[in-house]
Write a protein that binds this DNA or RNA. Structure first.
Lengths: 209, 209
DNA sequence: ATCTAACTTGACTGATTGGTCAAGTTCTCC
DNA sequence: GGAGAACTTGACCAATCAGTCAAGTTAGAT
């Protein structure tokens, strides 16, 4: 939906997005009803459908906006840094800093990632983020500072560590963003360097029941 | 709900669990209706409520059963292995092998993890898994083979890598479970060993917008 | 053979959902 | 001050939901 919005209209739209973000983050997409959103804001239902075609469109709007904001923040953080490993570190640090300031969005990401309706958008954003870091990894490999390996796969590994530790340390255990980032970076860079010789690859030959 | 079940009843119950698992994995918990489940099985709605108090109870039942099965599988895989690093490797390998045989459950885990109604159960199971691996990590630290660090935090880091790479490599890119495990283990053990000296800790002093 | 507990049916209920729309109000621009 | 666009209202709709229940069927135990 595209509409010419007055200042008042823009404010109302932002208000809807803000309130809906909070409700979605708390209850999830499906359990949060449009009625709940408009009632919470004390406006009629028509207001919602004046600004958005559907509940789904609103959610996508939220996701897109946040993804864009995060990416810009990351780019700004690594700009002009020549060292690829430092770029990886700055990227991780920026992501965690941004997420610390947007906890609702972290939750929304989880919801969206598994919902058929939104997972494509999330995977796309994830792919972009992974490709960004994969570029730095490739450079690191070329410089002989990172072990041989598929940069995209390693990028996913970093994303996995970052997400999990952000959730547990930042949002559950309430650690400082900086210290969470330190931990993630230490593990991620160690992981990139790899481990010489898997202890017992293929030694386990069990089959699933 | 506990009932005396005949053989026929037990079969029906299993059938409900099996079909519901597939539907939940495909559509998610909220969008899958009880009507859809019983219609798909060609039975009356009363059948569902003869075996389960609610849709929620069924879902919890599925989660609990799968968590139990996975844990037993992990335990069997590391039994009698004296080397802590090998136990970590075997545990990771077993988890990925098991998930390869139960792809629906992997999806269900994601759904459950973010739903307020089920996240407690998931976090509990996650905590158990992390504590398991944390024990081996602590041993590895004591043996001087793993860098100093909070074993529980490191356990979460391993869980994060495992989950992400399992999703992307095993389920999306359809790699072999064994090769996915190799990649995860290499990164995880490298991460445990850590990275001597963070490149530029705290050098980034940006604030979130 | 019969009794009883296990199992099954499917119409029904009350509540809620996403979305519509005719009508009314406010704002902006000329 | 008036015309038209932007905005708002809230009753309304068709669909769907989780869950109930009285009635009926099946099958193992005695």
């Amino acid at each position: 939906m595209t509409r010419r919005l007055t200042t008042r209209g823009q404010q109302r739209r932002d208000q809807l997005i803000g309130f809906a973000t909070a409700r979605f983050a708390e209850n999830g997409f499906h359990p949060t009803s449009v009625t709940e959103i408009v009632n919470g804001l004390g406006v009629g239902k028509g207001v919602f459908y004046w600004y958005f075609d559907s509940k789904e469109e609103l959610f996508i709007e939220i996701l897109r906006g946040a993804q864009q904001d995060l990416r810009r923040f990351q780019e700004k953080a690594i700009a002009n840094e020549p060292d690829p490993l430092a770029r990886i570190e700055f990227g991780i640090r920026a992501s965690i800093t941004w997420l610390a300031g947007h906890p609702d969005f972290f939750t929304l990401l989880q919801f969206a990632a598994i919902d058929e309706k939104f997972s494509k958008l999330i995977r796309l954003g994830e792919e972009i983020a992974v490709n960004d870091v994969a570029r730095h990894i490739r450079e690191g490999i070329d410089q002989g500072r990172i072990d041989e390996g598929d940069p995209v796969v390693l990028g996913h590994a970093i994303l996995g560590v970052t997400n999990q530790l952000t959730r547990v340390l930042l949002f559950e255990k309430k650690y400082e963003p900086g210290s969470v980032a330190d931990t993630v970076i230490r593990f991620a860079l160690g992981g990139l360097r790899g481990f010489s010789g898997v202890i017992a690859a293929g030694a386990l030959s069990v089959t699933s029941t």
